[in-house]
Design a protein around this nucleic acid. Sequence first.
DNA 1: GTCTAAACGAGACGGTACGTCCGGTCTTACA
DNA 2: TGTAAGACCGGACGTACCGTCTCGTTTAGAC
Lengths: 199, 199, 199, 199
Amino acid sequence: MSISKSTARRRGRPQGDEVKIAILKAANELLEERGLAGFTIDAVATRSGAARSSIYRWWPNRGALAIAGFLAETAQKIGYPVTSSAIADMKGQMMRVAEVYGQKVGRTISALVAQGQSDPEALRALLDGYVLPRRDEAKKVLARGVANGELRDDLDFDVVVDALYGPIWYRILVPHAPLTPDWAGRLADHVFGGLRPTR
Amino acid sequence: MSISKSTARRRGRPQGDEVKIAILKAANELLEERGLAGFTIDAVATRSGAARSSIYRWWPNRGALAIAGFLAETAQKIGYPVTSSAIADMKGQMMRVAEVYGQKVGRTISALVAQGQSDPEALRALLDGYVLPRRDEAKKVLARGVANGELRDDLDFDVVVDALYGPIWYRILVPHAPLTPDWAGRLADHVFGGLRPTR
Amino acid sequence: MSISKSTARRRGRPQGDEVKIAILKAANELLEERGLAGFTIDAVATRSGAARSSIYRWWPNRGALAIAGFLAETAQKIGYPVTSSAIADMKGQMMRVAEVYGQKVGRTISALVAQGQSDPEALRALLDGYVLPRRDEAKKVLARGVANGELRDDLDFDVVVDALYGPIWYRILVPHAPLTPDWAGRLADHVFGGLRPTR
Amino acid sequence: MSISKSTARRRGRPQGDEVKIAILKAANELLEERGLAGFTIDAVATRSGAARSSIYRWWPNRGALAIAGFLAETAQKIGYPVTSSAIADMKGQMMRVAEVYGQKVGRTISALVAQGQSDPEALRALLDGYVLPRRDEAKKVLARGVANGELRDDLDFDVVVDALYGPIWYRILVPHAPLTPDWAGRLADHVFGGLRPTR
DNA sequence: GTCTAAACGAGACGGTACGTCCGGTCTTACA
DNA sequence: TGTAAGACCGGACGTACCGTCTCGTTTAGAC
């Protein structure tokens, strides 16, 4: 995004971060509170106190702003616990994710995905900035599980991550029933344990 | 949508089905070809040869039209096979769903979900008209599997359906990787078999 | 408007003038009450209880209906008094016209004239059906005045009628001040008497 | 329309007068050429090269635009001559008005009046912006005539202005016969001279 | 301390789609 | 054949945003 900022400070007024931060904050709040429909450049400008032109100076369009707001404000709030059991760590993290996504963050995420359907760059940004990194984290936990014998060694990690986290996103985006930690726990149990009877 | 057409014909000019059909067809095609962005009432009108006002006579807004187009044209294309094995039936159906959703239908579905994020009625219609009925079908297959001993008898069907189909929707909506029958087959194997080592 | 009612009954359902009358009545009422803006074919249909198609059977478009409604209902309500004095007759008639036009009829007339601006046929119908006939009546009174010596014998009747009635229409259409009988009387006095000082 | 431009420039982009002028010009031309029927916001936009939204930024609806176009372009074209005789001045001005109104301006005026019938604000604007000011001018001339003895001193100026100009508007709006300077001259003669025989 | 170029607020501008309203035509069922 | 009902095409309306642009103002660093 920015090349050659390392070299000697350029002339002119430097870019007071407050404006940028206020914009991102407002963007995120609007996304949370009113979803994609209420997320208007004008609304962001009004709420943040910034001018529309200031927004367009830093982000090329509303999709980019939406993603940026999300990444800046809410993205990295859920870490993985680290205990001796990878399965327990996974399950715990899924439950915490469900808890968080079940509230305002869920609205934001679904708005972002919706935006992504008609805005390839926004989708790309969401994937690269959020989805893929988190998948990688999950895979590390899985690898740990394989290493210590908790998990089968023939697992396809991509499939497993889809199996564990896909349903969570599905419940955000297609809310046929509420997204709760309890449900997430049962989901983990079913997937880890399989569906076949134990002999 | 309208029952009670059986009774005596109403007074005025009857509603030449061709127009309605042409509109729905055009709506669906646009959704498939160009996603939500290109799905404009005007575009639908032009392509179908109908007048904008005719569209608004039958559907209150673009969300309703989008859902209606989908349900009328593409919704019921994938049935369940029925063999002796419920697990095989499930897996087979998932693979066929993946195949179909991996193409144009996927675009349509993601457009509908996106629309649903800012249009509660559209979301409701999608759930009631498509998602929930298909979940019910899946649960019947699962029940068969429990009955004949293929599946554990303590399963939470809602969780299981989420676990099996959630990832498919996830890959449509958050396309971090392509949606293929092969992947769907492996997904089924992982979930049915569980992730823990077999003794 | 309707000829040949005398001859032998034609086949089919007789045309029960009630519908036509109800339509004209409704048309006129709407014109009076809400002016051109509220004068909608649909509104006329609803109020009259007739179907839109029945309206279009008898009148080609809304302009024609408006004129017809006016002519049928309100047009011929103001006759000329006949006394020995033509000037008094004129003045009296002007005052009564002002009285009538100052109320609902004025709204109707201004609506018709407005309609006429973008509908040449409506204008033609208004002229032929109302304006010109009434001008002719006025000219007869003027001729009587010339004959009995009340009026100059070199008058241009068209100019005189314009001078006497033009201001009345003007006050209807450009209502810079109310249209009252008193004002009309003073108008008559000024025009008949001239504006120059009497020696 | 806007005073107080003298003070310090406002913050944002100033309002490039060209756009506004082009819009008004186009509006007026359309009114002249095609009357109220052809006077469409879209047509104005197309002809002026401006966007529809730019038009709506400055005028709230088509009525307001119509008036504004008229006032900006054609309104003030006819001044009063000033000679020693008030009567001659009046008559001269009436003839020139007749000449001008007899052409395109007449179309515009009748369109405006028509618009006014279903748009009270447009009517108000026409009265305040055009009709009343011009009536005031006329009254001044009349006052001069009274002062120098050409006219009776018991005249009701409002009635006189109605008597002199009312017929002209009447002939514009109810064009039963063409509006010519010659006719206007005869009108002036009749009204100033009165209709009674001179002893 | 001045100079100056970028940041910033404000808002005009061209566009595009929305959903509504109405006009006029056409097609049916019923009387 | 007249009438009620209402589907249909078409076109204008006014609204809401989008993304671009052009201003005047502010301000921290360069000089």
